[in-house]
Design a protein around this nucleic acid. Structure first.
Lengths: 245, 245
DNA sequence: CCACATTTTGACCGTTGGTCAAATATTTTC
DNA sequence: GAAAATATTTGACCAACGGTCAAAATGTGG
């Protein structure tokens, strides 16, 4: 019965078990999607019973939302790290693009899950707590990118007359999400002749930035050098998904 | 036992019933999504039994895929109609943008369903016939847009050195899908201050076109006149979703 | 060692997608 | 036009699964 802020042994055990459950659920989601596994199987995997799972999560949807929010938190972390990059505003925006690819490489199932959250009656079945946690992490990623856009306009790198910062940020978010989803569509990949999905995503981001008139434009500057620095300083492990010919 | 190509009475009745089922399923999907209705309820609605439904569709997923493909066919029809617009290549591309908004307005549930198709184990449960039908309609929409891009490059409206036609088409498809999905996200709508979703989608398409250097650029030409003509000639009913201040 | 509190369990429930033998309707045959 | 043959429709039934809860197991304090 501790009144202190430090967790008791019980509380720590509870937390450790929750992470165990989440890690196994993440694996199942990655391997099988949402439908092709059930709570019984997950209970077997973590070596607890079904009833115990429901002490941590109100429903299967609540559990999946928790997995998704965990991933979203990591993405926000990567975004904040990328935003620290020293350079012009467009270079920093570019660093965010790398962060998003780094994330997508490590959590390839994430966008699928995120799409499920939008369509189904997921939100009704999830607990209020987890809904708020998800919204909070989503707001973090938005804020990081929007801050860079605001600064770019303040500095004059990005024309401020035609589009509001929010419009520009929204365009970047939309093209990024859309590109990640579309690159994961096998049929479209063949039609569009895509061999390097991450490169396609970043190309589309460049198109939006150029369309916004974000200086310096793609072909007026040596972004190859920028990219080298971003990778070296922020994402040394990016070579796993970065295909440079 | 007719050997002729014209359908017998039975075949016509079967076809009519299939359309009845599809129209009720479409309504249920629109009102309740995927989970919040079951095959029993659909059977009641069409005044047939569950068993009869399964003579038309191999599974609930197969049925939903059929609804989705129907919608996709209408979209392809609208695209082909829009591509006929007389004008510069970028104006025709713009007409496609209008077609997509017209479609999204009439089938607001479509993108949600389309996202379900990507994530879940939908395809396994659907019949081979319906899978092919869906791929065919998808290919139609791609082709229409890609043709315009190819022509634009041939005419010199669109620089052909930097991006391939497929890359340009892919960028437009990605930004469109991403924008439609994102505009349907209530939280993001507040964050981005979006009051007119369709306008946001079309703005993002313009940004990609400008980024590609598709002449004439957005602010070098009187596209307001173009838009008036597109609406008048192709989509007279667009006033329902077109908010012009 | 016992009494009490907490945690864990898995049998059980309701719902739902899907099946199939029986009932019903339709067509063919004589 | 009645009986036989064929085709269609039905809804009871099944299995799978998310979720619940009384009982068993475990832990705790005296």
């Amino acid at each position: 019965m501790s009144m202190s802020a430090t967790p008791t042994r019980k509380e720590r055990e509870f937390q450790a078990r929750e992470e165990l459950i989440l890690s196994h659920a993440r694996r199942l989601l990655l391997e099988k999607g949402f439908q092709a596994w059930n709570m019984e199987q997950l209970a077997d995997a973590v070596e607890y019973s079904k009833g115990t799972l429901y002490q941590h999560f109100t429903s299967k949807e609540d559990l999946v939302l928790a997995v998704s929010t965990d991933a979203l938190r990591m993405r926000a972390d990567l975004f904040e790290k990328a935003a620290q990059f020293k350079g012009k505003t467009r270079e920093r925006c570019r660093a965010i693009g790398f962060a998003c690819c780094e994330f997508a490489y490590n959590y390839p199932e994430y966008f699928h899950i995120e799409m499920m959250l939008k369509s189904a009656s997921f939100w009704e079945k999830a607990s209020e707590e987890r809904r708020q946690a998800h919204a909070f992490q989503g707001a973090r990623t938005w804020r990081v990118l929007n801050n860079i856009v605001v600064q770019a306009m303040a500095l004059g790198d990005l024309p401020s007359g035609r589009y509001t910062p929010e419009q520009a940020t929204f365009a970047l978010v939309s093209v990024t999400v859309g590109s990640h989803i579309m690159t994961q569509e096998p049929i479209l990949r063949v039609q569009a002749g895509i061999t390097d999905p991450m490169a396609s995503v970043r190309t589309n981001q460049d198109l939006i930035c150029d369309g916004l008139g974000w200086q310096p434009l793609l072909h007026d500057y040596d972004y190859a050098s920028t990219d080298k620095n971003i990778v070296k300083e922020l994402f040394p492990s990016a070579s796993a998904w970065l295909h440079i010919d």
